[in-house]
Simulated assay, not measured.
Amino acid sequence: MLSNPQTFKSSDPQIFPFNSINCNGRLVELNKPKIMGILNLTPDSFSDGGKFNNEKSALEHAEKLLKDGAEIIDIGPQSTRPNAEFLSSSEEIKRIGNTISQIKKQFPEALISLDTFYAETVKFGFNEGIDMINDISGGQYDDKMFDAAGETKLPYILMHVNPSYETMHDKLKFEDITLEVNRYFSKKTNELLEKGVKDIILDPGFGFGKTGEDQMKMIGETEYLGFERFPLLIGISRKSFIYKPLGKSPLDINEETQKLHMKVLEQGAKILRVHDVPQTLETIRQFYEKNKKC
Rank of each mutant, 00 (worst) to 15 (best):
M36P: 09
I38Q: 06
N40I: 13
L41P: 13
T42Q: 01
T42P: 09
T42K: 04
P43Y: 08
P43Q: 06
F46A: 15
F46Y: 13
F46R: 11
F46P: 15
S47M: 09
D48M: 09
D48F: 09
D48T: 14
D48H: 13
G49Y: 04
K51D: 08
F52M: 09
N53Y: 08
N53R: 09
N54S: 01
E55Q: 14
K56N: 15
K56F: 14
L59W: 05
E60T: 13
E60K: 14
A62Y: 13
E63G: 14
K64C: 05
L66V: 11
L66H: 12
L66S: 13
A70F: 12
A70P: 13
A70R: 12
A70C: 12
E71Y: 08
I73H: 11
P77E: 12
P77D: 14
A84D: 06
A84S: 15
F86S: 15
S88M: 05
S88R: 00
S89F: 03
S89R: 05
S89M: 06
S90V: 06
E91N: 04
E91P: 08
E92F: 01
I93W: 02
K94T: 10
R95K: 10
G97Q: 01
T99E: 03
Q102H: 13
Q102E: 15
I103Y: 05
K105P: 02
F107C: 00
F107D: 02
A110T: 13
L111Q: 05
S113Y: 07
S113E: 05
S113K: 08
T116E: 10
T116C: 12
F117R: 03
Y118K: 05
T121D: 00
T121N: 02
V122S: 01
K123I: 00
K123C: 03
F124P: 00
F124M: 02
F126L: 00
F126M: 06
N127H: 03
N127V: 00
N127Q: 02
N127K: 02
N127T: 02
E128S: 05
G129R: 05
I130P: 00
I130C: 01
I133S: 03
I133P: 01
N134I: 03
D135C: 03
D135E: 03
S137T: 06
G138Q: 02
Q140G: 03
D143C: 06
D143F: 07
F146P: 15
G150H: 02
E151I: 07
E151C: 03
T152C: 00
K153C: 12
Y156H: 07
I157W: 08
I157D: 11
L158M: 11
M159K: 12
H160P: 10
V161N: 14
V161K: 08
S164C: 06
Y165R: 14
T167D: 09
T167K: 11
D170G: 04
K173E: 14
